[in-house]
Design a protein around this nucleic acid. Structure first.
Ligand SMILES: [Mn+2]
Ligand SMILES: [Mn+2]
Ligand SMILES: [Zn+2]
Ligand SMILES: [Zn+2]
Lengths: 145, 145
DNA sequence: CTTCTAAATGAAAATGATTATCATTATCAT
DNA sequence: ATGATAATGATAATCATTTTCATTTAGAAG
């Protein structure tokens, strides 16, 4: 749990107090193999600390995102999930069967952006790329069944 | 307005009735230079036909999406916008200043997908790419002021 | 042109996610 | 140990979207 200590230090460095709900929420985020929705974090959190409130989950996630410790993952319908952030530029690869989420890097979209800028006259400032697929475990599950 | 006729034909071919609200909503979609949120379509629709309801906007959009005539554009916060769909595989380029949205094609992400599949063991089935930038008009506005 | 029926509509309420309020609690610097 | 105030949690508010249901209407049939 050094990762947990690291997050706590960053919170302290930023003038935040270390509270029981925050510990619980951070632990949940760090131990989850997949991205979670706020209500999922809430449900898991209540198992550890029944007094915890959904509003505190939202507020803690807001703070953690502000500090760059977590990132949002977008879904078709609109509800967001969150997961620990990874340093630097990267994108998500989400398993559509079980939700397990992985990051990848090394996308080189520079050539595409240049082409698009030339063709459209727009200046491209940002991009948003997310991949969907089947993780190794779910591929096997499907084979066996 | 041949585009409008085309959409109406497709609705008819699929057993849908052609109603006044539907005409209004389709006209708004086809005449907008940018993607619209459901409430924006609702407000514009009321100017033409004050009796129209927001629920009908949602239902009509659902139907149009089902028929592949419109597509959703995702936003950071979660609320969706819609705009007429373009044939074939393409992605959106959204102006962050005025909202004007354009499509582009010719992304060749095959090499990236292969690399990701090798590195992660996932099978990549789908992808989601959206670019953000500044449109030509807004670039000029910024220069002048 | 009427008649008929299922599709479509709109008002109102329900739902689900997120945010705001505010009195109470608890962290942590002193 | 004490106090200032950050954080919490119960509650209510807000916002987008969906459901319900009684009423209207498009368009097929006669
Ligand atoms: Mn990238
Ligand atoms: Mn593509
Ligand atoms: Zn999986
Ligand atoms: Zn613009």
């Amino acid at each position: 749990m050094e990762q947990l200590q690291h997050w706590i230090e960053i919170l302290e460095e930023n003038g935040c107090r270390i509270t029981s709900p925050r510990r619980v929420i951070i632990e949940i985020l760090l131990n989850s193999p997949r991205a979670l929705e706020p209500t999922e974090i809430y449900d898991l959190g209540r198992e550890m600390n029944p007094g915890i409130g959904l509003v505190t989950v939202y507020r803690t996630l807001e703070k953690l995102e502000e500090l760059g410790l977590i990132q949002r993952i977008h879904q078709e319908d609109g509800c967001h999930m969150v997961m620990p952030a990874v340093e630097g530029h990267q994108h998500y690869l989400v398993c559509t069967a079980c939700g397990k989420t992985t990051v990848f890097r090394g996308d080189d979209l520079g050539a595409l952006f240049s082409r698009v800028e030339t063709n459209t006259g727009y200046q491209v400032n940002d991009h948003w790329l997310q991949l969907f697929g089947t993780c190794p475990d779910c591929k096997n599950d499907h084979k066996n069944g």
